[in-house]
């Protein structure tokens, strides 16, 4: 069973020449089949956690460990981490002009699966996944994320999640900028992947809204670079009612 273990993770970012510590000792274990919600106010470092695990070059891990099934993730390159089974759905996916979605998806699937998917079954697989996410087939011919609306970008991220079938999915603010219809479609996509029981999900969010569609098994409150409280789904309701003030001293709604 796949397990992601984060142990006493400290991460810094270069801020005008000086190293600024953002993560100050994060401990968390996510197992296949589990869904963990990381909730916290803006600036608490929750996105940094996701990007550090994925290996974004902007962040420097100063101490601690990240292990996937016992393997040292931090010594892997970004693409090795993805091939090991990590997936990061980004809050702001990047435009890649001139590279079609179809080409991108196939190149990516080939890398992750270790061989090129058979063309016939692949086309069916992509079309089925796109239909479920209510994406127009013409979408496949567009350049990656170029000119996509916010909702299209998020659907495209979840489309990749469904096709790449990671062991651990990190979903960074997947709900932000989505209207209710798009949120429902995107959440259904995440739930289909979860229903396979083969993925561990780390859902990063500021607001509780998405948790009405994607029920977490665990909720963790993130503040000032670490997890300050953990509980079950009921903790989200507490945050909904009381906000993050208790953790930050600043009145901010969840």
């Amino acid at each position: 069973m796949a397990t992601l273990e984060i142990r006493d993770l400290h991460v810094s970012v270069d801020a005008e020449g000086a190293q600024k510590e953002i993560l100050k000792g994060v401990d968390l274990t996510v197992r296949q089949g589990e869904t963990h919600a990381i909730m916290g106010p803006n600036g608490s470092g929750k996105s940094t956690l996701a990007y550090s695990i994925a290996g974004h070059p902007k962040y420097t891990v100063t101490s601690g460990q990240v292990l996937l099934d016992g393997e040292d993730v931090l010594s892997m390159t970004v693409d090795e981490r993805a091939r090991a089974g990590l997936f990061l759905a980004m809050q702001y996916p990047v435009e890649v002009p001139g590279v079609s979605v179809a080409n991108f998806l196939r190149t990516s699937a080939t890398a992750i699966r270790g061989e090129a998917p058979k063309l016939r079954t692949w086309v069916k697989e992509v079309n089925a996944a796109m239909t479920q996410l209510q994406m127009d087939p013409a979408f496949a011919e567009r350049s990656v994320n170029e000119g996509f609306s916010g909702g299209e970008k998020k659907r495209h991220e979840i489309l990749q999640l469904e096709l790449l079938k990671p062991k651990i999915a990190l979903l960074d603010e997947t709900d932000s900028g989505l209207d209710v219809d798009a949120l429902r479609v995107v959440s259904e996509g995440v739930n289909r992947v979860r229903a396979t029981g083969e993925v561990g999900t780390l859902l990063i969010t500021h607001y509780t809204r998405i948790l009405k569609y994607i029920q977490p098994d665990f909720v963790h409150v993130f503040a000032a670079g670490r997890i300050v409280e953990s509980g079950g789904a009921e903790l989200a309701q507490v945050l909904e009612d009381e906000g993050y003030e208790k953790y930050t001293g600043i009145k901010e709604v969840a």
Binding site: V78, R81, A82, F87, V94, A111
Partner: peptide
């Protein structure tokens, strides 16, 4: 950022 995005999908550098 483009490079990171593509690599995060398993594509070698």
């Amino acid at each position: 950022e483009q490079l990171f995005y593509l690599q995060a999908r398993g594509i070698p550098e």
